[in-house]
Design a protein around this nucleic acid. Sequence first.
DNA 1: TATACGATCACCT
DNA 2: GGTGATCGTATAC
Length: 206
Amino acid sequence: MTIMPTKRLSHRFFIRDTHVVARELLGKLLCRNTPRGKIVGRIAEVECYIGENDLACHASRGRTPRTSIMFGEAGHAYIYLIYGVYHCLNIVTDKIGKPAAVLIRSIEPVSGLEAMQLARRTKVLNRLTTGPGKLTQAMGITRRLNGENIVSSSELWIEHDGLKIASNEIDVSPRVGVDYAGPCALWPWRYYLRHSEFVSKTPHSK
DNA sequence: TATACGATCACCT
DNA sequence: GGTGATCGTATAC
């Protein structure tokens, strides 16, 4: 069997429809260069946030200084602070002028385990990266990297290693933590690897 | 200038 | 099951 070399995802990958990008991001490798070395995690859970009709999307009320990044070029990082405490990492998708992004909600640690354990102040594997705020803390991702072009960045990028994810390995559900968004809270815009031990949780609403 | 609140998490009962 | 932490952002005034 041939071993396919890992390869960085390009602008062409991210400029497509947000749901397609979200599904195909499952199984891909989120990579981070830090002074302590390279940290890698396999993406296990994502959510879509799309445009003006999605009341859970920060861009639904138009362009503001914070959300302008989502209106820009696909393949850039949209990183924001939530609850004054944690950071959330999104990747901008689709065409310029159409605000949309994929939230990375969980990863499975692949390498750089010690660095992640240090950053998270725990060694317990299933508490390391099983949520959007946890994985950014584990990988040292903060607002300093907001707007970073992950197509060309030496600090943050995404690779694929040839691993194929079959459709029947992907489960779909409503998004987590957006009950305030009315009917949008019920939309099945969360995708995750069915058998992964690193999915954040089952959403409360169905 | 003031106010309300959130795409979360850890810790508590 | 519930709650506090903690601050940038959007909106109201």
